[in-house]
Design a protein around this nucleic acid. Structure first.
Length: 268
DNA sequence: GCGGCTA
């Protein structure tokens, strides 16, 4: 049931799980590692928080990534609307995915605000990560949310090469890092410029026909991975992230029989 | 260069 986890000698690429995407986020002095992995049982996102002397990890099933994304949007929005009499307890949510339960709680102390995410699963110790809201404008949560959004889309668009070279000799495919984070000029194909985007979770950003243009680069030994979307998809993606902020709030608050519940705080 | 988490 549990696989033979005792065989491997420690970190690195141990295990048969395939790494699809790795990202790193630094919030204040914490480091968060995002590893999208896949094994014959399915796909999951491993989120690790690394502190000076502590590391903790939660494992999010792939179907939970979008819920995490929604919840982070919820906390960002809720904090943005400066509601007067809101206690931190009202921000408690729990997310149930299969047999796991993730508890989301907002706390605050002298260091600032933070979001505590605890994973409770059967026969395994509860593990917790704490995400600082950030010093200004919740940039910590926002950065976390952005990475979740990227991974969420990546997981849906990811193409797993049929034949993987286990060696790290993979080369970048038609990609130059010099492009940077800016715009890719030219090629202004028939990308939808603004207008009405009917973005829903179930709707794919890029139709499957265009997936062939998708190029994925993996930098071996680096904490950076990049995904190249077709230009049309890129534009939609950009607008979609903004769109999510509005869509998500209704989703979270209007949840009916879904996985997320608002948790009533225990009475003191 | 922090510091929160709980069993």
């Amino acid at each position: 049931m549990e696989g033979n986890s005792g065989g491997g000698g420690g970190g690195g690429g141990g295990g048969n799980d395939v790494e699809l995407l790795c990202k790193t986020l630094q919030v204040e002095h914490k480091l968060f590692y995002f590893d999208l992995k896949e094994n014959p049982r399915g796909r999951y996102l491993k989120i690790s928080e690394k502190t000076s002397a502590t590391r903790s990890t939660i494992i999010v099933p792939s179907n939970g990534i979008s819920w995490f994304l929604d919840l982070f949007n919820y906390y960002l929005n809720s904090h943005d609307q400066q509601q007067d009499d809101v206690d931190d307890d009202l921000f408690s949510k729990e997310l149930q995915l299969d047999t796991k339960v993730f508890y989301f709680d907002v706390g605050e102390n002298r260091r600032g605000r933070f979001l505590k995410i605890s994973e409770a699963s059967v026969s395994r110790n509860r593990s917790t990560i704490i995400v600082p809201a950030g010093s200004t404008r919740d940039e910590g949560w926002a950065a976390f949310r952005n990475i979740l959004a990227e991974i969420n889309e990546a997981s849906r668009l990811f193409i797993l090469p049929n034949q993987q070279n286990s060696d790290s000799s993979e080369r970048l495919v038609g990609l130059s890092d010099d492009v940077g984070a800016g715009f890719i000029s030219g090629l202004s194909s028939q990308a939808a410029t603004g207008g009405d985007l009917n973005v829903e979770r179930s709707a794919d950003v890029v139709p499957p026909d265009e997936i062939g243009n998708l190029a994925v680069s993996k930098v071996a030994g680096s904490d950076r991975s990049s995904i190249i979307l077709p230009l049309s998809g890129l534009k939609q993606f950009h607008e979609m992230v903004g769109h999510f902020v509005e869509v998500t709030k209704d989703r979270i608050e209007g949840l009916t029989g879904a996985n997320v519940r608002t948790v009533d705080p225990p009475q003191r």
